[in-house]
Amino acid sequence: MKQTSKAAVPYIIWMSVFIVIPLFLIGVFAFTTTVTVDAAGNIIDPETLGYMDGAGIDRETGELTADESEEETDISWVTFPLTEKTIFTLDNIFAVSDYLPVLFLSIWLALIATAICLIISYPLSYMISRMNFQRQNIMLMLVMLPMWMNFLLRTYAWMTLLERNGWINKLLALIGLGPFEMINSQGAVVLGMVYNYLPFMILPLYSIMTKIDERTIESAQDLGAGALAVFGRVILPLSMPGIASGITMVFVPAVSTFIISRMLGGGTNMLIGDLIDLQFLGNAYNPNLGAAMSLVLMIFVLLCMSLTNQLDNEEMESVLL
């Protein structure tokens, strides 16, 4: 079957065009910017350019088409026509540092959500893994079922619950509490993350725990280990790979989300994903800055992953599928 490695050729071409080149383009955009230069190659700063446009000076010829300017700016040094040019710059990367608080907020909220997912999922996964085979399947199906609904619908459902006139406030009013401001807060964003990504934590934990042999636990007990020692010295170490992959599978989508924060955070709790979205499809249109942010986010996520998951390829497959 030596010749058959050629079967991968169409994919390798596809992969180069649609995976490698696009990522390369992110790098190109992140390190360049478009500027206006005059015929002599001098860069025209935005202020001068704004003045010229305001005064009605034609960019091609330099002729005055309509004199509407109030102040005079010296533009005698400008030679026409003006053209646009792409130049190398580190400005975008430096500009990302202005948004570090947003990046830190994203990381912080994603970390909290990941921790809550882990705390909720760990006992649950253990319980499911100790049930009989048929009940395990039913439980897993029940866990997976909400995940099969579109995540926009699931997040929308929480909007209905958390609103000021929402169901939770109504229930609380029955026992004389509230109303509480729950939506449009960081807590609501974390809740949305936990709700959406909880199954990503349960599944890897469950699949690693089914591999823990009941007899291992029993022999630890026979050797005199109490409940705490069984957990700390048998179950926890054996489930470590599941914990690691669960953490990555929750943290990565949580840190880069941009819809959950918009729907439940009410626009005041912007995350890094929202900022990237704004640079490409929003009001703040600036693909160069957006690309720089994407680059930073991508490097951060890939670094985190190489730290938590020291897996080889075959293990990776079993985790992902």
Partner: peptide, 29 residues
């Protein structure tokens, strides 16, 4: 093989927003 496989993992491991943005840049380009 390991080069091709590692590139194959990229769209799965990368945040989806980065994959989306990168493809958008390609189509614009």
């Amino acid at each position: 093989r390991s080069i091709v496989l590692n590139i194959t993992y990229l769209p799965i491991l990368n945040p989806e927003i980065v994959t989306g943005v990168s493809l958008m840049l390609l189509f614009v380009a």
